[in-house]
Design a protein around this nucleic acid. Structure first.
Lengths: 203, 203
DNA sequence: GGCGCAAGTGTACTGCCGGTCAAGTAGAAG
DNA sequence: CTTCTACTTGACCGGCAGTACACTTGCGCC
């Protein structure tokens, strides 16, 4: 059999992330993961010292992928329009379209998933979770600052709150979408945020 | 010892809800619940046929309490101002103030908690979760309809989306607040939604 | 062609946890 | 004085997380 570098390790991460997002971390047994991957329990523990290590690796991979996606969307948006406001509005539109095209909707966010199970993780993972949200916050806040420098806000809103609002809406909309079985809620809520941004800044 | 009706049953629900919101359902063992309540395992299974029954009872109690709270806030708000828009704005303000006054912030929402662990619950609980969100949706939508009848919206927004937006923001803000350890995020995000409502409807 | 390392397998074990079952008890209600 | 509710005592089963450790297999390198 082919011995590609870390073949099974990635398989474990793929299977585990799907299962954890669906059922939660504690409800995902190592047993079922190794059965689906086609590996033995020893094989699993060769790659990960314990379940917490799995959670950590999963999280790092997830955050890296999200960051890359955001970078890419940002780049494309500001290629289309350099203006801070219009570029950001296009950015949000692209994000909504991308999510709208996912056949089964966004699978769920590990940040939220871990958040409601935080007590079973160690401090390191909790700090990673916090750092991930703060990095989004910083990213969105930078956009808003650049916008506000050109378009003075028409409403008296705190830009930090407004930056948090996008994270808030994404996380919340994933929950509502999942609970209702209506994937479109997420893209639609992002467009609502977009309306809000427009109504705050557009003259 | 006093034999108040269903004394221990309520104790179980109290302990379990705290633990489940913190750690998740699967990570909350019956063992630890009965130890904290000071009860035997048989005592637990006297009240609940299995863990799923516990989840169901917990959920019903949670939803009933939330509904009552919303009713109360609504009543007080419209006592202060009968106008649909201003009454709703006051309603949101009262909600934000109430959440702002909670010393440790909102403990977490069972709907979101269950949502990320849905696969371990039976169909009945999943339907209850859906119904709870739809009932909020209906409640908020009714406000918005009454507002729109008097104040024609200045932005072209879908009122269903706007009603979902409040649920979305509440659920999302709880996650962000928890992950960052900053309880104030929730009331502040509700006030952001309030600004949005105002900017859509206020002439 | 032999050596070492990465990537596993095989197997046996501990201990917790969900859940079951049978029998018994203390106090309130009628 | 019986019956019902709300538990207790205690024994038990099967499944899963996680540990431990000896063993194997294929590839790259010298």
């Amino acid at each position: 059999m082919a011995m590609q570098r870390s073949g099974k390790r990635d398989d474990i991460l793929d299977v585990a992330s799907r299962s954890i997002i669906e059922k939660g971390f504690a409800a995902t047994s190592i047993e079922e993961i190794i059965v689906e991957v086609g590996i033995t329990k020893s094989g699993f523990f060769y790659h990960f010292a314990d379940k917490n290590e799995l959670a950590k690796a999963l999280f790092q991979r997830y955050i890296a992928a999200e960051d890359q996606l955001f970078d890419e969307l940002e780049r494309r948006a500001f290629e289309l329009n350099e203006d801070p406001l219009h570029g950001f509005l296009i950015n949000l539109k692209l994000l909504a379209e991308l999510l709208d095209d996912l056949p089964n909707g966004h699978p769920g966010c590990l940040i939220a998933s871990y958040c409601y199970q935080s007590q079973i993780f160690n401090a390191e993972i909790r700090r990673m979770n916090e750092a991930a949200i703060l990095s989004w916050q910083k990213r969105f806040r930078a956009h808003l600052d650049r916008i506000a420098a050109v378009y003075p806000p028409r409403l008296n809103v705190d830009l930090d709150d407004m930056a948090h609002m996008l994270t808030t809406i994404v996380e919340g909309a994933i929950i509502v979408a999942r609970a209702l079985g209506e994937p479109k809620v997420l893209p639609r809520q992002i467009l609502m945020y977009r309306e809000f941004v427009r109504s705050v800044f557009q003259p």
